Amino acid sequence: MSIQHFRVALIPFFAAFCLPVFAHPETLVKVKDAEDQLGARVGYIELDLNSGKILESFRPEERFPMMSTFKVLLCGAVLSRVDAGQEQLGRRIHYSQNDLVEYSPVTEKHLTDGMTVRELCSAAITMSDNTAANLLLTTIGGPKELTAFLHNMGDHVTRLDRWEPELNEAIPNDERDTTMPAAMATTLRKLLTGELLTLASRQQLIDWMEADKVAGPLLRSALPAGWFIADKSGAGERGSRGIIAALGPDGKPSRIVVIYTTGSQATMDERNRQIAEIGASLIKHW
C-alpha cells in the first residue's frame, strides 16, 4: 500500500482519535458579512469528516447552483462504474471539434489522439474542462443518470439537468442544476469515506481534487503551510461562485467545507476574496 493510499485508508482512524471539535460562531459572522459585502445569498456548511456531524452552517438547506462543483460527483459516478466493471479508466475516447464547448483548455489539445477516461476526469476536476465533463456525462448516460446515481446514494436534493455550459445559467428560483450545502457536503463525505467506492477509487477521487489547479484564489489562499486540501470550485452566471473541499491540518483532511453564493453584482475577484476570507476565519478558529 502506498503512503497516499495509507493516508486515505486511515482518515477515519486518525479522526477518531482527534480531540473533540467545537464550532466557532466567528466564522458564521464572516459568512454573514460576506453576504453584506456581496449583496447576495451565501450558503455555508462545515462537517466533521469522521462523524458527519454538522459543526457550523448557514442557509444549509437553500438551493444554490452547483456550477462546476458537480464534476466531482460526476467522476465519482464514473469511478463507481469502474468498480462495477462497467468502465475502464484506460479506455480512450475520441471526439471532434464539434464536441468542444466553451472553456476546454485540455480537451482542445487532444482532438487528434483523444483522451482516456482517467485523463478526462483529471481534466474535468483539476482544470474544470467543460468538454471533458460533457464527454464523461455521455459515458454514464447524461445528466439524468448522474441525478439517479445521487438518488441511489441517498441524495434526493442534488440534481443535474443540463450539460456544460448551460448548467451554469443560475436563474433565480430555478431548481435545475442545483444542490443544497448540506446535501453536497453529505454526498461528498460519502464519496470520500464511505463504502460506495473502493479504496482505490476513493484515493483516485481525492487525488484529482488535491491536484486542483484553478481554485488557488479561494480556500487555498488562506491555508497555512502543512495543511491538506482537496477541492473543486465552480463559477456561473449572475454572480455565482462555489467551492467544495476536504481539508485539515497535519497533512490530512478532517472536515468537509461547502460554500456557495449566487445573485451578486460583485466582480469575480471580490467573490473570490470573500470566500478566501471565510476560509481564513475557519482556519483561525479551527
Results as ranks from 00 to 15, higher is better:
H24W: 07
L28C: 06
L28M: 09
V29H: 13
V31K: 00
K32D: 03
K32H: 11
D33N: 04
E35H: 03
E35F: 02
D36T: 15
Q37D: 06
R41W: 03
V42F: 07
G43Q: 01
G43R: 00
Y44M: 07
I45R: 04
L47R: 06
L49N: 04
L49G: 13
L49S: 11
S51E: 11
G52N: 13
K53G: 14
I54N: 14
I54D: 10
E56C: 04
E56V: 07
F58P: 00
F58H: 03
R59G: 13
R59K: 11
P60D: 14
E61S: 09
E61H: 14
E62C: 05
E62S: 06
R63Q: 12
F64A: 01
F64W: 03
P65K: 13
P65T: 12
P65N: 15
M67W: 01
S68L: 00
S68E: 00
S68D: 00
T69I: 08
T69R: 01
K71D: 00
V72A: 12
L73R: 01
L73E: 03
C75G: 06
G76A: 07
A77Y: 08
V78K: 02
L79F: 06
R81H: 06
V82C: 13
A84F: 14
G85K: 08
Q86T: 15
Q86D: 12
E87I: 09
L89W: 13
G90C: 05
R91S: 09
R92P: 13
R92Q: 12
I93G: 02
S96C: 05
S96A: 06
S96N: 07
Q97F: 10
N98V: 10
E102D: 06
P105R: 06
P105H: 04
V106T: 09
V106N: 06
T107N: 09
T107P: 01
T107V: 14
K109S: 13
H110P: 11
L111E: 11
L111H: 14
L111N: 13
D113P: 04
M115S: 04
T116R: 05
T116D: 11
V117S: 03
R118V: 14
E119Y: 03
C121G: 05
C121Q: 02
S122D: 10
S122T: 11
A123T: 11
A123K: 02
A123P: 01
A124L: 03
A124N: 05
I125N: 05
T126D: 05
T126G: 05
T126C: 07
M127Y: 06
M127A: 08
D129G: 01
N130F: 01
N130W: 01
N130K: 02
N134S: 05
L136R: 00
L137W: 11
T138E: 15
T139R: 14
I140Q: 10
G141E: 07
G142D: 14
K144I: 13
E145R: 11
L146C: 12
L146V: 05
L146H: 03
T147P: 05
A148L: 09
A148K: 09
F149E: 13
H151N: 09
N152F: 10
G154W: 05
G154S: 08
H156T: 13
T158L: 02
T158P: 01
T158K: 00
R159P: 02
L160Y: 02
L160A: 12
R162D: 09
R162F: 04
W163T: 12
E166W: 13
L167G: 05
L167R: 00
N168L: 08
N168T: 07
I171H: 15
P172T: 08
E175I: 12
E175H: 13
E175G: 09
R176K: 14
T179Q: 00
P181A: 14
A183R: 13
A183T: 13
M184A: 05
A185R: 00
T186M: 13
T186E: 15
T186I: 04
T187P: 01
T187E: 06
L188Q: 03
R189G: 12
R189C: 11
R189V: 07
K190V: 11
L191P: 00
L192V: 09
T193N: 12
T193I: 13
G194D: 08
G194L: 13
G194Q: 12
T198S: 07
L199C: 12
L199E: 06
A200Y: 07
R202Y: 05
R202W: 06
R202C: 07
Q203M: 03
Q203H: 03
Q204G: 05
L205H: 00
I206F: 03
W208L: 13
M209S: 02
M209L: 11
M209Q: 03
M209K: 01
M209A: 06
E210S: 10
D212Y: 03
D212I: 03
K213A: 04
K213E: 03
K213T: 04
K213Y: 04
G216P: 07
L219P: 05
L219N: 04
R220E: 03
S221L: 04
L223D: 02
L223V: 15
P224E: 04
P224G: 10
G226R: 05
F228M: 12
F228A: 11
F228Y: 06
I229N: 03
A230M: 04
D231S: 13
K232H: 00
S233P: 05
G234L: 00
A235N: 04
E237G: 12
E237H: 14
E237Y: 12
R238G: 08
R238L: 13
R238V: 09
G239F: 02
S240K: 01
S240G: 06
R241F: 03
R241M: 08
R241H: 11
I243R: 01
I244D: 00
I244G: 02
A245W: 01
A245E: 00
A245I: 02
A246T: 08
G248D: 02
P249L: 11
G251D: 09
G251K: 13
G251V: 13
K252E: 09
K252C: 09
K252Q: 05
P253A: 04
P253F: 03
R255K: 09
R255N: 02
R255F: 03
V257T: 09
V257F: 15
V258H: 00
I259L: 09
I259C: 14
T261D: 03
T262L: 06
G263Q: 07
S264K: 05
Q265R: 08
Q265I: 11
A266E: 08
T267R: 06
T267V: 08
T267M: 11
T267D: 09
T267Q: 12
D269A: 12
E270N: 03
E270M: 03
R271K: 07
N272D: 12
N272C: 05
N272Q: 09
Q274H: 09
Q274C: 07
I275F: 15
E277Q: 13
E277R: 12
I278W: 02
I278P: 01
G279V: 06
S281T: 08
S281G: 11
L282F: 11
K284Q: 05
